[in-house]
Structures are given as C-alpha cells and as structure tokens.
C-alpha cells in the first residue's frame, strides 16, 4: 500500500508540474514560471513530504519528489511531442544533471560538518540516539 501511495503522490506531482508550468511561463513570462513553482511545488511538497504520501522514514535514504518531476518531464516531452522526441537525446544532459546533483550532495555533507548552524543540531541528535 505504501508503494501505491508513493506512485499516486508522484504521479500527481509530475502531472501538476508539467500540466501547468509550461503554460504559466508561456502566459506570464519568467514571473509565471516563478509563480508556478510557488503554487505547484508548495502543495506537492506539503502532500508528498510534509504529510508523507511519498514513503520516507527516519534513518533511511531520502527519496525526493524531484525524481518524480524529472521522470515526468522526460515522459511528458516524449508523449507530448511524439514522435519527434527520443529518450536517447536527453541522456547527456541527464547524466550531467545527475553528476552536478551528486557533487552538491557530497559538498553539502562536508559543509554541514563545518557550518556552526548544523553543529548544535548534530549534538542534539547524538544525545537523542544515546538516550533512546
């Protein structure tokens, strides 16, 4: 059942983003794109991650709705502009995108270890661990 809710939540997220975002920037320009992020990602995040429709549990790997948005973008373009779009054409940009994201994840871990704002939190969680 948790996988069903994951599929439903990510399908809604992907459909929202690619049903509305392109129309918003075509109608209202760059500010439309910014506004689309506000109205779409906020409600999708609230549903998928704050309420937990996409299954994530503490101490496990975080599966973000970004995966859903990314795969929806590829699927949307392939279906919407059939037969002009082939999946192989997006692989270079996709790989570069994943490399950049992975580098940022590594960098964020390193930065979190040195930035003071994250130090107290780390201490608190250690205490909780030792208590619990």
């Amino acid at each position: 059942m948790k996988h069903v809710s994951t599929v439903i939540g990510s399908a809604i997220c992907g459909a929202l983003v690619f049903g509305i975002w392109p129309e918003m920037w075509k109608s209202y320009g760059i500010m439309g794109g910014w506004l689309a992020a506000t109205i779409l990602i906020s409600i999708a995040w609230f549903m998928n991650h704050w309420l937990g429709v996409i299954t994530n549990s503490d101490g496990r790997m975080w599966i973000d709705q970004g995966w859903a948005v990314g795969s929806a973008g590829v699927a949307w373009a392939i279906v919407r502009f059939y037969p002009n779009q082939l999946f192989v054409k997006c692989i270079p940009a996709l790989v570069l995108c994943l490399i950049g994201g992975a580098l940022a994840g590594v960098a964020a871990v390193a930065v979190k270890k040195s930035v003071p704002a994250f130090q107290t939190q780390a201490d608190d969680s250690d205490k909780e661990d030792s208590n619990g």
Partner: peptide, 17 residues
C-alpha cells in the same frame, strides 16, 4: 538536448547521495 531534463533529477540525486 531532447526530452525535458528537469533540475528535479539533480535535487533527487543530491538528497539521495
């Protein structure tokens, strides 16, 4: 370069890593 590549891929990958 082809079908839309969204920055969602990068965010998902980054949080996973």
């Amino acid at each position: 370069t082809g079908p839309w590549v969204d920055m969602g891929w990068a965010i998902g990958m980054g949080l996973w890593v």
